[in-house]
Amino acid sequence: MGLEIQVQVNGKNYQSEIEPRLLLVHYLREVLGLTGTHVGCETSLCGACTVLVDGRAVKSCTMLAVQADGSEITTIEGLTATPEAAGGLHPVQEGFWEKHGLQCGYCTPGMILSAVQLLRDNPSPTEAEIRHAIAGNLCRCTGYQHIVEAVEYAAKKLRSRKR
């Protein structure tokens, strides 16, 4: 019943034999022990489980692990190793810290990864574009305003580096 997959997660290669029905989020959390990716609903409605699969923000509860075979995945734990992080926190992580973009922190990893993708696609988003880009990620604590400010902070920092 096991199927073999090969994935690269946060720069490391993994080869695993898994049940075909195993969700990607459970593969990351339970097989690889990367528990920074959270589960808030399992029905693709909250965004807590968002990771980057081949550079695209994906809700990892909507994807089977076998569908990720051959992919490159970045989870929240791998963000400090991306070039944008330049050896420290990723500017989006830093923005969340600076601007109080989190309270309980449960939605945060998914929010951050959605924002990372936004800023890769659109380095100078307007407030409305930021709000739209994270509309698939629910947060019950912050009321979103500080999250928007966190993303604005990160955008500014990333832009200033490119100059």
């Binding site: 528990t35 989870t75 963000l79 400090t80 992580q93 830093e94 810290w97 989190l102 922190g105 951050i112």
Partner: peptide
């Protein structure tokens, strides 16, 4: 800014379901 945030923004904090 908060003392608790570095662990939370890096996904290295532990909620109950993260424990094994």
């Amino acid at each position: 800014k908060r003392k608790e945030d570095p662990r939370l923004v890096q996904g290295i904090a532990h909620y109950v379901d993260d424990l094994t």
